[in-house]
Computed example of a mutant assay.
Amino acid sequence: MARRLYRRIDRAIVPVLVLVGWELFSRSGILPPALLPAPSQVIVAWIDWIFAVDGNTQNYSGKWLSDVAASAGRVFAGFGIATALGVLLGMSIGWSRVVEKLIEPTLQVLRPVPPVSWIPLAIIWFGIADKPAIFLVFLGSFFPILLSTIHGVKTVDRNLLRAGAMAGGKPGMLLRHIVFPAALPSIFSGLRIAIGSAWMLTVTAEMVAVKSGVGYVLWDSYYFLRYDIVIASMATIGLLGFLSDFAIKAISARVLRWQRGSTLQAKES
């Protein structure tokens, strides 16, 4: 019973300790409460931001869902474009040496450029709207997906390819039925990295180039010295990133059931 109980609560131990320590420190008076709001104060502000309980968050009261929807729409738009293009281009580069020689040098030059540095150009090109945020999310998500896909394709077991070719498989069939499934574990790893970058960059873009979303609320509340709302915004971003990553993990576990079965067989043998 004790072991079962521990397994259920072990993941909550560290967060609870952090919150308790934070609450005690905030109430100790070492820092002014306005500079470091206690978790209880943040929760009160967060609840009003969500449900419009007493209006203590003023203009933000009751707008949490619309702010989250705005940010999520930008994240999944940029992330979806990056996934489609990153996987397609990664498969091409990993499979064809000609494509690799033509495209990879240019991509390797662009890859070290921080996506944030594109903000001025994004504003000039797209204006103050959703498009700059989607563009930055795309940039931040694209390269992790691309590189993971290339790695997955290049590390496919050559014996599988030889067996497929000997069975009469054409390059298109080999790509579809052997290379792509074998590269999926690496692709999903890239997707998990990319979704974290996507949330970080959409918040950054909303601070500068957009007038809605969780990032905009974070930056706007900073100007009004509402640090409880700032922290509630940060917690919202962390929660949304966690849920997005959890969703990708769940999809990965479902799609890659064959990998788990082969791993168990290898351990048993």
Rank of each mutant, 00 (worst) to 15 (best):
F242W: 11
G62H: 01
A163K: 01
L240Y: 10
A52L: 11
A198L: 13
T202L: 08
L24T: 00
S40W: 03
I119V: 09
Y60W: 15
P115M: 06
A250E: 11
R260S: 13
T149L: 00
T204K: 05
F79V: 01
L240D: 07
S197I: 04
Y6E: 09
A38P: 02
L31M: 10
V153F: 07
I251S: 03
V208R: 15
A133T: 00
E268L: 13
F242S: 09
A69F: 03
A70G: 09
F246L: 10
I123C: 01
S197A: 08
L5N: 10
F51R: 09
I231V: 11
R260L: 15
F135R: 02
L85F: 08
L218D: 05
V156N: 02
G196M: 11
P112M: 05
V255D: 08
V87T: 05
S221M: 03
A235H: 01
M207N: 14
P115F: 04
I81Y: 15
W219H: 08
G261H: 12
F135N: 01
A72Y: 15
P32Y: 14
V179I: 10
V137N: 06
I128C: 01
Y223C: 10
V217A: 14
P185N: 10
Y227E: 05
N159Y: 07
L35R: 10
S28Q: 11
V116H: 05
Y223L: 12
G94A: 12
Y216G: 07
A167D: 14
K101V: 00
A122M: 10
L17W: 07
H151K: 04
Y227T: 09
R254I: 02
S28Y: 06
A182G: 03
N59W: 12
G172M: 11
A163F: 13
A12F: 11
A38S: 15
R111F: 03
D10A: 10
A38D: 15
F246Q: 07
I231S: 13
D54R: 13
A72H: 09
T204D: 06
V75C: 07
S244E: 07
S71F: 03
V153E: 11
F246V: 05
I134V: 08
Y6L: 14
F188G: 01
V18N: 13
V210K: 09
N56K: 12
L184H: 04
G62A: 06
G238C: 11
T149R: 04
G168N: 02
Y222I: 03
S148G: 12
L121W: 00
A198S: 04
E23S: 15
I30W: 14
V179F: 04
Q265D: 08
K170A: 13
S233K: 02
A82D: 10
K267Q: 12
A69D: 12
M234F: 13
R257L: 05
F188A: 00
K154G: 00
D157F: 01
